[in-house]
């Protein structure tokens, strides 16, 4: 029996890799990615900034009209708003809301979207038909009117402002799972056509093995990309909701709310300290999440070098 002679085989140059798993390889690729690390650093900073930062602030989040609309100074690094509240402190408090909403809404939308999409694609038949028709209906419904109706219902039910944020996350998750579900479904449908999925059947692998070792790692990149986009769009959607008075209610701040609060010409032209900081915060966070998402996607691709 002939053996391939590897004389000219460039692959021999590759370092020998021990019996590591895809996950370990992915981790090694991830930490070698400059952008990933940058993204992680920014994200960590943002989380610390939002959740720990307020404890170091000398100010209280209470109105003090005597100090309204002050530009940045030694005392108020980012100035004050029209009610005299410290913008830096509000930026940190708003970060809690925005980050929580962004990440939690994304987790909900991924949970619903991935599982329904996977079930739809994997089992097919009437299950698929039903799930996809529901998805069509949700997709066809205009999002904003529904949100307005839901906001009204929440107000009628006298849901305390502090709890509203959880409902906001839930609503955002509910209305945005459709896109992810479709992505995952089509990914699984195309995977099912691949001969290696047929091979798992011939080999008689258990369903759990098929899903965990063969389907899931190949759907993962799609999910990561969808998740990355989801966080960014949830943060932005939340600001739209808050602007309409459906999300968090004043005085609770969120980045989106702070942005939209500076919606008159005077604030915009004369008081940039009101809207530049939340804008930068949103931008940095979204950018960092995109870096991390891209790096994760590449990390799980064995074709990428370690």
């Amino acid at each position: 029996m002939e053996r391939p002679t590897p004389t000219l085989d460039y692959r021999r140059k590759n370092k020998k890799r021990g019996g590591t798993s895809l996950w370990q390889d992915a981790f090694r690729r991830f930490i070698k990615n400059k952008y990933a690390i940058l993204g992680l650093v920014i994200l960590t900073f943002m989380i610390l900034f939002a959740f720990i930062g307020p404890y170091f602030s000398p100010h209280q989040d209470v109105p003090d009209v005597t100090k309204a609309n002050q530009p940045p100074s030694k005392e108020h690094w980012l100035g004050t708003d029209n009610l005299g509240r410290d913008v830096l402190l509000r930026l940190m408090l708003a970060g809690r809301i925005s980050l929580t909403v962004g990440i939690a809404a994304t987790l909900i939308l991924l949970l619903i979207g991935v599982s329904l999409g996977a079930i739809s694609g994997y089992y097919g038949g009437w299950v698929d038909v039903i799930i996809m028709r529901i998805a069509d209906i949700i997709y066809a419904m205009p999002g904003l009117p529904i949100l307005i109706v839901m906001g009204a219902i929440m107000s009628d039910l006298k849901i305390p402002p502090a709890h509203r944020i959880y409902y906001v996350m839930f609503i955002l998750g509910i209305i945005s799972w459709v896109g992810v579900a479709r992505l995952v479904r089509s990914q699984i449908l195309s995977l099912k056509e691949q001969e290696f999925m047929l091979a798992t059947e011939v080999l008689g692998l258990r369903d759990s093995k098929k899903i965990i070792k063969h389907l899931f790692p190949n759907v993962l990149p799609t999910v990561i990309v969808a998740g990355t986009l989801g966080v960014a769009s949830s943060i932005i959607s939340e600001s739209a909701l808050s602007f309409l008075g459906l999300g968090v209610v004043p005085p609770t701040p969120s980045w989106g709310y702070m942005l939209s609060a500076a919606n008159n010409m005077i604030d915009f032209a004369k008081r940039p300290w009101l809207w530049i900081p939340p804008g930068v915060a949103i931008m940095l966070t979204v950018l960092a999440i995109n870096f991390v998402g891209d790096a994760l996607r590449d990390a799980f691709d064995p074709r990428q070098k370690i």
Binding site: E2, R3, P4, T5, P6, T7, L8, D9, Y10, R11
Partner: peptide
């Protein structure tokens, strides 16, 4: 009859007969 081995990797080949290893 078989020709052993496989076509060489085409990257940065040197100056010799490329079939020599098979």
């Amino acid at each position: 009859y078989t020709i052993p081995g496989q076509v060489p990797n085409p990257i940065d080949l040197g100056d010799f007969c490329y079939f020599s290893d098979r």
